[in-house]
């Protein structure tokens, strides 16, 4: 048990240090998120009412796309330098090791999206409670995006054109998170409670936490076989 904990912490720390050394990767994802959201008013016009009603959907779709952008690198660097193979050979359960990698991915790409979202929400005219709900929904939702996305990243490992393929595989699976996340903000916007949305999102997160690591581990074993 102790050995497992050490392994998980070592892996997590290693991923975080590597990400810190390659700061620009995480910053590019964050920048993409900000730029995409900022382009919407230029596309649909500056009408505040329209922008406000579109804000939940715009923010969530942009978050999906930004996450998508970061997925390709999730396993490919470790795959190229051989460390992924070492992880697979280790005696610790692979699904837990994978979980630690995904935690690192979320800390590097998901959490910054949550933290920057109030700024973008205000830009699009959301008010205080709406922004709070938006952040809560993103906090519950971005781990789902990382977990489900990692299945796609594992399945396209080492394939030519993997990045584009991931989007086709994974975006349809993001639909529930998108509906619940944008719906939560919509609900408070139209004066009802977001509790149902957020509870369902939490349930979805738990379900994903239980199932996804197993699928990712199986996918990695298949692709590195």
């Amino acid at each position: 048990m102790n050995g497992l904990a050490t392994a998980l912490i070592t892996l997590l720390r290693r991923d975080l240090i590597l990400a810190l050394r390659r700061r620009q990767d995480a910053l590019v994802v964050l920048g993409f998120f900000v730029v995409v959201v900022s382009l919407f008013p230029l596309g649909v016009g500056p009408d505040p009412q329209l922008l406000r009603s579109m804000a939940p959907g715009v923010l969530w779709v942009s978050a999906l796309l930004a996450t998508m952008l970061s997925l390709e690198r999730l396993f490919s660097d470790d795959f190229r330098d051989g460390s992924l193979e070492q992880i697979l050979l280790s005696p610790q359960p692979l699904s837990l090791l994978v979980g630690s990698k995904i935690l690192a991915h979320w800390l590097i790409t998901g959490l910054p999206l949550v933290l920057i979202s109030p700024l973008l929400g205000m830009q699009l005219g959301l008010d205080g409670t709406e922004i709070l709900i938006l952040m809560t929904a993103l906090l519950l939702g971005t781990p789902i995006l990382s977990l489900v996305g990692a299945i796609g990243a594992a399945l396209t490992l080492g394939l030519r054109g993997g990045g584009v393929l991931i989007s086709l595989l994974i975006l349809p699976l993001y639909v529930p998170a998108l509906v619940l996340g944008a719906g939560a903000v919509d609900a408070v916007m139209y004066g009802s409670s977001a509790q149902a949305h957020l509870s369902l999102m939490a349930a979805l997160l738990i379900l994903t936490l239980l199932l996804a690591p197993w699928a990712i581990a199986a996918a990695l074993r298949i692709m590195l076989d």
Binding site: V148, I151, L155, L169, P172, L173, V175, P176, L204, L211, A215, A218, A219, I222, M223, D225
Partner: peptide, 17 residues
């Protein structure tokens, strides 16, 4: 094998979707 994993992930998701 790989697409089997995807099909299973999909079929779990279909009712949720």
């Amino acid at each position: 094998n790989a697409s089997a994993i995807l099909a299973l992930a999909g079929v779990v998701n279909v009712p949720i979707i």
